[in-house]
Write a protein that binds this DNA or RNA. Structure first.
Lengths: 172, 172
DNA sequence: AAAGATTGAGCGGTCAATCTTA
DNA sequence: TAAGATTGACCGCTCAATCTTT
C-alpha cells in the first residue's frame, strides 16, 4: 500500500484546504482529497499493526485470521473462508495456517460434512492469544482514532467510507 | 513516531460465539466502524491499482514513483525522497528505480551539489507514461468515489481522515 | 467440471551490511 | 558520525499446477 505524497515547490499544486479549484484543476482536488484519505488510513493501520505485533508477536495476517476464528463457531472455520476474510490467496493462506498451527494457536480439523474442506479451530492457547491481541487492537484503535475524532464523526466517516465498498448491504 | 500504549479498561470484550451483530460492547462498535473504513478504502485502492496496471502496465509502486517525479523539478528528485514518498525502504526503492530505469522511464543523474545522492528524472517516455497513468488514476478515482459521494461529502471525509494522520498541518 | 487445500516457483519487498560522501 | 545508495540474504505473498472430493 502506497501513500502518494507530493511535496512540491511548484505553484499551483499546493492544495489549500477549503479552496475549491482556483488554480487547481478539479482532478487535482480529487486526487489531493484521496491522498489525505490514504495518509490517514495508512497511518493508523501501520501503527495499529506495529502495536499488535509488538505486544503479541502476531503479524497482521495471523492476527486477523485469529480474530476471524474468535468469531467463528467452536468447530472451526474452513480455511478457504478465512482466506477470503483476510483477502489472501488460497495458497498463501495455507502457509499462514501452517505457521499458526506450528505455533500451537490453531488446529486443523477435517470437516465432517465435506471431506474437501479442513477447518481451522482455535486451541486454548490460540483463543487466549486472540483475545489478548484483540484487546490490544481495540485499545489502539481507541487511542488512534477516538482521540482525534468524536464517536459521531467516526460514525459518519465509517458511513461514507462504507459507501465506497460497492456493497449494497452496509451490514458487515 | 513513538506509540504510547494505554491499557484497555476491560481486557475481555470477547464476542459471544454465535450471533453476529449483537454488539453490546463499545469496542465492538469501534472495531466494526473501522472495519467499514478499511473495506471502503481497500476496495477503491484495489480497483484503482488494477485499473492503472491494466491500462498502463505500471504496478502501484512504479506508478506512484512516476507521479512523484511528475511533480518534481526538471533536474530530478533524490531516490531517498521518492522512497519516503512511496513508503518504501531505501533498498527496496533502489530496485524499483532499477526497473523504471531498465524500462526507459527514468534516468539516474548524480546530484551536482551532493555527491552522495542520485536523482531520478523522467525520460520523455517516462513523462508521457506518467501523464497517461495519472489520467487513468484520476478517472478511476472519479468513477469510484464521486459516483458514490458528493464532492462535499468527499471533502468532509478527507478532512476527517486526514485528522488521523498525526500531522498538525492538514495541508498536504 | 468445479471447489478446497497443498506445493513449488517466482517476485517483490524488508533488513542488515557495505561503500561512498558530507 | 551520519546520510544516501546499493547489494545480498531472507521472507511472505501470488500464481499455476496438482490432488482429492463433490
Amino acid at each position: 500500500m502506497t501513500t502518494p505524497v507530493s511535496r512540491s515547490p511548484q505553484p499551483g499544486a499546493a492544495a489549500a484546504p477549503g479552496e475549491p479549484g482556483l488554480d487547481c484543476s478539479f482532478d487535482d482536488e480529487l486526487v489531493a482529497a484521496w491522498k489525505r484519505v490514504a495518509r490517514g488510513y495508512t497511518h493508523v493501520t501501520q501503527l495499529l499493526t506495529e502495536q499488535v505485533e509488538r505486544e503479541t508477536g502476531l503479524p497482521a495476517a495471523c492476527f486477523f485470521a485469529l480474530v476471524g476464528l474468535l468469531r467463528g463457531g467452536d468447530q472451526g472455520v474452513p480455511l478457504s473462508a478465512l482466506a477470503r476474510q483476510v483477502a489472501f490467496s488460497s495458497g498463501g493462506f495455507t502457509k499462514v495456517a501452517d505457521r499458526l498451527e506450528q505455533g500451537g494457536l490453531i488446529e486443523r480439523r477435517p470437516s465432517a460434512c465435506d471431506r474437501r474442506v479442513t477447518n481451522a479451530a482455535l486451541t486454548p492457547a490460540g483463543r487466549e492469544q486472540a483475545e489478548r491481541a484483540f484487546a490490544v487492537y481495540s485499545a489502539g484503535l481507541r487511542e488512534l482514532v477516538l482521540q482525534r475524532l468524536t464517536i459521531n464523526e467516526l460514525r459518519v466517516l465509517a458511513d461514507h467510507m462504507s459507501r465506497l465498498s460497492g456493497d449494497t448491504v452496509p451490514g458487515n
